[in-house]
Amino acid sequence: MFDVLYPLFSVFAFLGFVLALIPLPWHLQAWNSGTCFYMVWAALACLNQFANSVVWRDDTIDRAPVWCDLSIRITMAASVGIPAASLCINRRLYQIASVKTVSITGAEKRRSALIDALICVLFPLVYVAMQYIVQGHRYNIYEQIGCYPALYNSIPMYFISMMWPPLLGCVSAVYAILALRAFNARRIAFSQFLAPSTSSAVPGLTASRYLRLMALAVTAIILTTPLGIFAIWLNLTATPVGPWVSLSDTHFMFSRVEQIPAILWRGDRLLVIALEFTRWAAPATALVFFAFFGFAVEARKNYALFLGAIATAFWRALGRVVSRGQESGFGHGVT
C-alpha cells in the first residue's frame, strides 16, 4: 500500500536525530545532565523510527528479529525517558531558582548528575524490564511503521506501562510551577547565580538559557502528558480490556510475531491515530529542542567555532598535500 508520508517522515526523523545532538557538547560543559539525557533519548527515538520507516516502508517481512527486539525496547524506554528528562530539567531549574548560595561544590554537581542518571537511565531500564509482565508476544510489525511493542491490553498494563508518561508529566509540571514562582519571587537577585563564568553557581547557564530551558520543559509537558492521557483513553475505548489470568496465560505463544499490512491497520481510524502520534512524537520533541537551542547566540558561536576548526583542518591537510607534491616533483627533477 502506498505511503503518502514516505519519505517525509523518514527525512524528519533523521533530521531530528542529527539536530537533537548538535547542542550536546556545550550542555555537557554546563553540567546540564537532564538536558543531555533529553537530547540522547530524543535522538535515539528518532534514529529508531527512521530505521523502521525505511526498512519496512512497503512490507512486513520479519527480516531483522534482533533489531526488532532492540527497537521495541528503545520505543518503550524513550516513552518514559523523554518525560523523565523533562522532569529533571524542571527539577534543576527549581533548584537554581531557589538556591541561596553562589557556589556549588563539585560533589554537589556530581550528586545532582547521579540523581538525574537514576531518573533518566535506571528508571527507563527498569520500566522496560517490567513490560515483560504485560507483553503478550514477541513484537508486531506494521507495514510503513516497523517494529512495535505487543502489550496485552489488561488492567495491569495501565499500571505497569500506561500511567508513567502522564505521571512523570504531572510531577514535572509541579516542578515547573515551583520554579516559575521562585524565579518570579527572586528575579532581581537572580542574575548573580546565572553567569557564563566557571566561578558561578551554574557555569554556562545564562538567564536567556534558563528561560529557554523552562520553555522547553513546559513544551515537553504539553507534548507528552496529553499524549499519554490520550493513549490511555484510546486503549480503554478502541479495544476490549482483557482479563488478567496469569503470566503463563499472557505469554501463551509468546514467540510469535504478528505482521500487519498497511491496508489492514490503516482501515482502523483509532489505530492510525495511535501509531502516527507515537512515531511523530520522537521527531517533534527533537525538533522542538533544536528550535529552542539551535539558533541561540551560543549555538551560533559554536557553529562558527566548529566550521572554523573544519576549515583550519582542511587547509592544513591541503598544505601538506601540496608540500608533498612539491617535494616529489623536486626529487624527480634531480634524477
Results as ranks from 00 to 15, higher is better:
D3R: 09
Y6R: 06
F9R: 01
V11N: 04
G16F: 00
P23F: 05
L24P: 03
P25Q: 06
P25S: 06
W26R: 15
N32L: 02
L44P: 01
L44S: 07
Q49V: 14
V55M: 05
D58F: 07
A64T: 06
P65C: 08
V66C: 08
C68D: 03
S71V: 05
I74Q: 00
V80C: 05
A85H: 03
L87H: 00
I89M: 11
R92G: 06
V99F: 09
K100F: 06
T101Q: 14
T105A: 07
R111P: 02
L114P: 00
I119A: 02
L122D: 03
L122K: 01
L122T: 10
F123M: 10
Y132Q: 08
I133Q: 02
V134N: 02
Y139K: 07
I155P: 00
P156Y: 02
M157K: 11
M163S: 12
P165A: 06
V171L: 15
V174G: 10
L178I: 02
L178W: 08
R181N: 06
N184V: 07
Q192A: 08
A195N: 13
S199V: 13
L211W: 09
L216P: 01
L223C: 10
T224H: 13
F230H: 12
F230I: 10
L234K: 05
L236M: 15
L236Q: 12
T237K: 12
V241G: 04
G242V: 04
H251I: 03
H251S: 08
F254Y: 13
R256M: 11
P261E: 11
A262K: 06
L264M: 09
L264I: 13
W265F: 09
R269Q: 13
I273K: 08
E276W: 14
F277I: 11
T285D: 03
F290N: 01
A291L: 14
G294Q: 04
A299R: 02
K301L: 15
A309S: 14
I310C: 13
A313Q: 11
G319W: 12
V321C: 08
S323Q: 12
R324V: 05
E327H: 11
F330E: 15
G333H: 10
